[in-house]
């Protein structure tokens, strides 16, 4: 970066910060804080936050599995499997999560008699996220050079052994950094599950808000609570990127 660019960047950041500070100051001045009202509901916040964590973890595990299956499906020998996987990935990536939640929850889950809204919510979130992970895994697999596959063939590895000993370990370095980023996305996207009445973090904040009429005091902890989860994950993603870039 040249000196000129550095100065520009610094000025931009300062200006943006000044603007934000002014806005916050104006809002905070206009409001009279009501933290004590919200504090009484800390248990609700806590429970919602914990729910968000395990919902996200479950969805992450399940979507990695789905993504792996879809990625392998796109490379399968049978055309039907390839089309099915491609259709899944394109359909899901081409529609908003909110729309998927509405259709899959109120139409599909209802039709198949899936009553547990937590299970349904985790499944839908996994289906959504799995499509993105499928593309990451596919990219990782396709980054393996032809010569590697030829080498595996030459020493007589089976298809499965080739995946296990040659493709997966090498694809891992390409997949892990974006996967960590996807984990942060899942945490944020899980907030949409609140519309299904799943008592995760966002719904908890909404409940506190409607009980206390303290909007800012309800939603500020919400933002902080999400940041407390996503910042470490993003940091991990950055670390992984640096580590693998260094190794190659």
């Amino acid at each position: 970066m040249t000196r000129h660019q550095t100065i520009n960047a610094v000025i931009s950041v300062l200006l943006a910060g000044l603007l934000l500070a002014t806005a916050c100051f104006a809002i905070f001045q206009a409001l009279s804080w009501n933290w004590s009202g919200v504090w009484a509901y800390r248990q609700v916040f806590w429970q919602g936050w914990v729910n968000t964590i395990w919902i996200s973890l479950a969805a992450l595990a399940l979507s990695v599995l789905l993504g792996l299956l879809a990625a392998l499906g796109r490379r399968a020998r049978y055309p039907a499997l390839r089309w099915l996987s491609a259709g899944y990935v394109e359909l899901i990536r081409g529609t908003p999560l909110l729309v998927q939640l509405l259709i899959l929850f109120y139409v599909v889950a209802d039709a198949v008699g899936l009553q547990n809204r937590y299970l349904a919510g985790i499944l839908i979130l996994s289906i959504f996220s799995g499509a993105y992970i499928a593309e990451m895994i596919r990219g990782g697999i396709e980054s393996i050079g032809k010569s590697q596959l030829e080498s595996a063939r030459a020493i007589g590895l089976t298809r499965w052994q080739t995946y296990r000993h040659v493709i997966f370990p090498q694809a891992m370095r390409h997949v892990l950094p974006p996967l960590a980023g996807q984990a942060a996305s899942i945490i944020k996207d899980s907030s949409l599950l609140s519309i299904l009445g799943i008592e995760e973090f966002t719904l908890a904040a909404q409940q506190v808000n409607s009980a206390t009429y303290s909007t800012l005091e309800s939603y500020l902890p919400l933002a902080v609570g999400y940041l407390a989860l996503t910042l470490p994950v993003s940091l991990l993603a950055r670390r992984l990127e640096d580590k693998f870039r260094y190794e190659t």
């Binding site: 010569s147 590697q148 030829e150 080498s151 063939r153 030459a154 020493i155 007589g156 089976t158 000993h165 040659v166 370990p169 090498q170 370095r173």
Partner: peptide, 20 residues
């Protein structure tokens, strides 16, 4: 063919070792 190949040692121009 796989069984056949497994009993033949092949060395490539650009070695094709497994980098990991």
């Amino acid at each position: 063919l796989r069984t056949f190949r497994s009993n033949i040692g092949t060395v490539f121009q650009s070695w094709n070792l497994f980098p990991h």
